[in-house]
Design a protein around this nucleic acid. Structure first.
Lengths: 146, 146
DNA sequence: AGCGTTCGGTTGCATCGGTAACGATCAGGT
DNA sequence: ACCTGATCGTTACCGATGCAACCGAACGCT
């Protein structure tokens, strides 16, 4: 006997496969060209966008587990791409900032990211992108007020 | 200096976060109630949908790496939820099928999956779901003819 | 001040997952 | 039949990751 349940239509499954497919192309860039992992790329990008953040802020904004952030920060620091500085008043907190070298990598990667997204828009079509974005908006809105 | 690149708007990033959020709820079910991993759930679901498949077919259909499939099959077999049978003519191939026990778990999980998806539709709204699905269609279509 | 709790961040441990190599089998050409 | 290359599936190795425990610091309460 066979079930009528169709995995191919199950939303979590479709989203996961789509996400993997869309992420794979750009992951190749930061992995092969800069030997970076996804947590490292995200950390770099967030620091680039906000100028300076703490590890906790990166964790909250990116939904990455704090150990992931901790290890990504450590790795980026070892390559000389970010620096830590102490907080006045709360010695538990570390403020993270990109170094000049970090900014250089960031500039190259964001340039690639823009190109990658432009290519996606080209291949999927503006309508499909718009539909996708409105769906993602709904998910994020739901996530926010639960 | 700060960059104008906004990670929060980068499609691969948004998709990955949305996928994680949507998957997390259902993952809790198969993980906590049945101690299953995602590859195991996917394998079970595919076998439920198609009746019998080989490991290679599961790998191709699900985009899971063949080692993931191999380990998931092994685990499901150890629990008595699937059986392997030899192929007539090609002794490399193994045909996989659910056992009665496997079908029972499958029935419970697909029931939960349907409920989960209904709940999602409720919370996100039919319009958002439709938009999301059309975006996913475009990604899969692009994936297909590349 | 003293005590328990919470918080920022790190680390040990066990598990998961991908790469590459492998054994066995099959297919094609000679 | 033989040899080469491709295919199915498994495994060894190693990097990535989550959980829980941990340290030091800050906070709240008395």
């Amino acid at each position: 006997m066979m079930s009528e349940f169709d995995l191919e239509a199950f939303l979590p499954y479709r989203l996961a496969r789509a996400s993997d497919a869309i992420s794979a192309g750009f992951a190749t860039i930061y992995r092969e060209r800069y030997n970076m992992t996804r947590p490292e790329w995200r950390t770099l990008a967030l620091l680039g966008a906000f100028g300076h953040l703490t590890a906790t802020e990166i964790s909250r904004r990116s939904a990455m587990h704090k150990t992931k952030v901790s290890r990504a920060v450590q790795s980026l620091e070892e390559r000389g791409w970010l620096t830590r500085s102490a907080d006045d008043g709360d010695r538990r907190v570390e403020h993270l900032e990109l170094t000049a070298g970090g900014w250089a990598i960031h500039a190259e990667l964001t340039e690639n990211a823009r190109a990658y997204e432009g290519d996606l828009r080209q291949r999927l079509g503006a309508d499909a992108i718009a539909a996708l974005l409105s769906g993602l908006d709904a998910i994020e809105a739901d996530r926010a007020h639960d």
